[in-house]
Computed example of a mutant assay.
Amino acid sequence: MEDEPAQWPIGRLLAAAARAVEREWDERLRAVGLQHAALIALDIALRNGPTGADVIARTARVQPQTMSRTLERLERDGMIERGPHPDDGRRRVVTVTEHGRTMWDTAKHIERDLLPDDPELRRHLTAVLVAARAPRRRS
Rank of each mutant, 00 (worst) to 15 (best):
A132T: 06
L39P: 05
R91L: 14
L39E: 11
M79L: 07
P5Q: 04
A134E: 09
R12F: 00
V128T: 05
M103G: 01
T106E: 09
P9C: 07
E75C: 05
R91A: 15
R82H: 00
D26V: 12
I40S: 09
D43W: 04
V21D: 00
A53W: 01
P86W: 00
R92L: 12
R12K: 10
V32I: 15
V32L: 15
Q7F: 08
E24W: 00
A20F: 07
M1V: 11
I56R: 06
V32H: 05
R133V: 06
E22R: 10
R30C: 10
D26W: 12
R136G: 06
L121G: 01
D105Q: 07
S139P: 15
E2I: 14
R92T: 01
V21S: 01
E22F: 01
L29Y: 07
G33T: 13
A15H: 04
L129R: 03
D3S: 14
R69N: 08
T66P: 03
A53R: 07
R123Q: 02
R69I: 10
E24D: 06
T66F: 14
A18Y: 01
A107M: 12
R91V: 11
L13I: 08
Q63N: 14
R138I: 14
E81H: 03
D54T: 15
T66K: 15
W8Q: 09
T97L: 02
D77F: 03
R19A: 15
A45D: 09
G78M: 04
L14R: 15
W8T: 06
Q7D: 15
P64A: 02
T95F: 05
A53V: 07
A16L: 07
G33E: 09
T106A: 13
A134S: 10
I110L: 13
M79H: 07
Q63V: 14
R23N: 12
A16Y: 11
G100R: 01
P119R: 03
A132M: 10
T95V: 07
N48Q: 08
A6M: 10
H109V: 13
K108G: 09
E22W: 00
G89F: 08
T106P: 01
I110Q: 03
V94P: 03
E120L: 11
H109G: 14
V128M: 04
P135N: 03
